[in-house]
């Protein structure tokens, strides 16, 4: 079995592990690093549970190999939950207030996608929010509460930031 030395910056810390090329990024995060906040569902790109940020853009952790992420910056829900990530924090609070999660399986992935959305567009329409989360399956909430929560987080962020 060949393995390759793979160095990835994960949540701001550079980590090196010897991995098989077939190890995908989400298994690297969960298995090698114990970062189990990123979930694994379908393993073919449709459910969105494994979504993380790589170099600031969302990617599917199940469709990218750890060796491909070598040399890149990866942010997971654990990193985004650290102080300083005000968008993610506002989203997390809004998800609680709006009952936008039940079992929570889909939640980390949706929070990562919503963080990317509000970073690029601080005041998205409901249609845009729906389009952004269309790459995520939630089997519990029926999505409306998630759209409400993302919109509420955007409103709260706009209010706390004051007029531009």
């Amino acid at each position: 079995m060949t393995t390759m030395a793979t160095t990835i910056s994960v949540n701001g810390t550079s980590v090196t592990r010897q991995v098989e090329p077939r190890t995908n990024l989400v298994d690297f995060l969960r298995g090698e690093l114990g970062l189990t906040g990123t979930h694994v569902g379908c393993e073919h790109g449709v459910c969105g549970a494994c979504t993380v940020l790589m170099d600031g853009a969302t990617v599917r952790g199940c469709l990218i190999l750890a060796v491909q992420a070598s040399g890149r910056d990866v942010l997971t829900i654990e990193g985004l939950s650290e102080p300083g990530h005000r968008i993610t924090k506002a989203l997390q609070e809004a998800f609680v207030l709006r009952n936008a999660l039940q079992c929570g399986f889909c939640t980390p992935g949706i929070l990562v996608t919503a963080t990317e959305l509000l970073t690029q567009d601080p005041a998205p329409s409901r249609e845009l929010i729906r389009e952004a989360i269309s790459g995520h399956y939630c089997r519990c909430t029926g999505y409306h509460a998630i759209v409400d929560a993302v919109q509420q987080a955007a409103d709260v962020l706009a209010a706390t930031q004051g007029p531009a």
Partner: peptide, 25 residues
Amino acid sequence: IAGGQSLMTAMNFRMSSPALLVDIG
């Protein structure tokens, strides 16, 4: 392998099992 967004799904399903991946990414 380029973006891997089709190939990885096929490989995860073992519909495709190449011995070597040449990453042009």
